[in-house]
Design a protein around this nucleic acid. Structure first.
Lengths: 110, 110
DNA sequence: AATTTGAGAAACCAAAAGGTTTCATTTACA
DNA sequence: TGTAAATGAAACCTTTTGGTTTCTCAAATT
């Protein structure tokens, strides 16, 4: 069973969960109350998130607080960022190309 | 059928494909030759990548060149980057601090 | 003209994903 | 002490995913 951050954030519900607990930890029930699906379904999402390290659970009494470990997102960040130069470079050259087109159009239009 | 960039990059084979064509476009067969799975399987991955806009196909005779549209990764980038300030610096430890406060408050309030 | 090559698509399959309901266990509390 | 609340987990179901083989078709080659 693949359990990596990329797979974890592929699901929109899980991204919502992360967003929900990013600023403030919440217990499992509180999290699940914010979704239409059952508590069990949300719990499974939370399990996947903890298995890949994006969420840590802290037990307190009968409650368990879910805390987002956002540092884990660095794996995604670094994968994406390695391409940023390529795509901005490409946008730049596209921009130049379009500028050239405009210039040519102006000249032809004279 | 959900077809977004997050879901597209969840699969390691698809991330490899993106990496393979990031610098230089390749036709479908050339791409598939670099994988153990069948051409049909790679083709399906390419289809998913094009459906979400991460790859554009340009026909050239009987060949079709796959070109990475890396700008599409900005969707992932911006989602991740909104959390960067939370995971770096003191805000992250503030979160832990607040979590501890919550827990303590519960205990004290009993 | 006949053959090879690159690609798209259909039919099929096993496993994984995402959901449900139900039940058990532990902790809090009236 | 007995009950409610929070959670974990099992059993089950349907759809999606990732793969296969096979067939077709159009473009290149010989």
């Amino acid at each position: 069973m693949r359990r990596d951050v990329f797979q974890a954030i592929a699901d929109p519900t899980r991204r919502e969960i992360i967003n929900m607990i990013a600023f403030k930890s919440m217990n499992v029930n509180s999290v699940s109350e914010n979704f239409d699906v059952s508590r069990a379904a949300v719990y499974k999402h939370l399990k996947i998130l903890t298995e890949c390290g994006l969420v840590k659970i802290k037990q307190k009494g009968r409650e368990r607080y879910c805390e987002a470990k956002l540092e884990k997102l660095i794996e995604v960040s670094s994968w994406v960022e390695q391409y940023r130069k390529l795509w901005t470079g490409r946008l730049d050259s596209l921009d130049n190309y379009l500028t050239d087109l405009q210039i040519k159009a102006k000249q032809d239009g004279k």
